[in-house]
Design a protein around this nucleic acid. Structure first.
Lengths: 128, 128
DNA sequence: ACGAAGCTCCTACACGTGTAGTAGATATCA
DNA sequence: TGATATCTACTACACGTGTAGGAGCTTCGT
């Protein structure tokens, strides 16, 4: 269970912790958009489950409230999501990119930026 | 419910239909890798649920067996999967591409191919 | 025409997820 | 210090998903 699978709602909780740092349950709840904000105890349940999955941990206690922090990085979680998607495409990323291009979500600029990134990375990796 | 959300197992069933055409439940089951192949009735349940979701339909009857065919295209389903993923990234594809690049899944060749595709598509779209 | 083999339809159940209530502990304010 | 607000811990439940069994209808071979 190195990288647990996180659901949509769980990811929203993680998102609060990733972008705002260590928080209490209340603060996490308040990080939800006011429109359709789950009940306090709903958030609490998610927090407990994330704790069970070792995705977050109790950092300290302030007053009677526990403060939680993410123990999985946003990057790791994102990688997991993408890998899951890729597995449906036989692990190959080309169809995904092709789709993004065909639906116009990926522009020429985006692709060229990606190209720059590849070149930059290969410069850092190879010369050793 | 234009494009229902399909689960992993449901997608495997769809996959059989997409790649082999109209099939009976038995044929779908046999399309699963021999290693870890679900019970006949498990596949049958998936087929019924997919029917409920209007993702497949009964095409005809051969002997006492129904023959099913996909009523959702592979492309549409894939688009749905990708859109779901993107929604986590705020709808923006760049982070996804960046991830693919950083984890070495997307090579320079892949990106250049994508670039070609964009140019080809824009030639077909714009001149009108 | 009868039995074996196969298929359909219904039912069941455990686990994960989203949703939330309640009881009791704890802290805070006047 | 007593009332009020807040938090924790536990419990509950419906729905989706993966998994499959069983009863009964259908077909096919002999």
């Amino acid at each position: 269970m190195a990288l647990p699978r996180l659901t949509k709602l769980e990811l929203q909780v993680m998102d609060a912790l990733w972008s705002r740092g260590a928080l209490s349950v209340r603060e996490i709840q308040e990080a939800f958009p006011e429109k359709d904000r789950p009940a306090y105890t709903t958030v609490q349940t998610m927090v407990y489950r994330l704790e069970g999955k070792k995705a977050i941990r109790r950092l300290k206690k302030i007053g009677n409230a526990h403060i939680f922090e993410a123990s999985i990085s946003r990057n790791a979680a994102q990688r997991r999501l993408i890998d899951d998607l890729l597995s449906f495409f036989g692990g190959s990323p080309q169809p995904v990119v092709a789709h993004l291009v065909e639906t116009g979500k990926l522009t020429l600029d985006d692709v060229q930026e990606a190209e720059q990134l590849i070149r930059k990375l290969s410069k850092k990796e190879k010369p050793r």
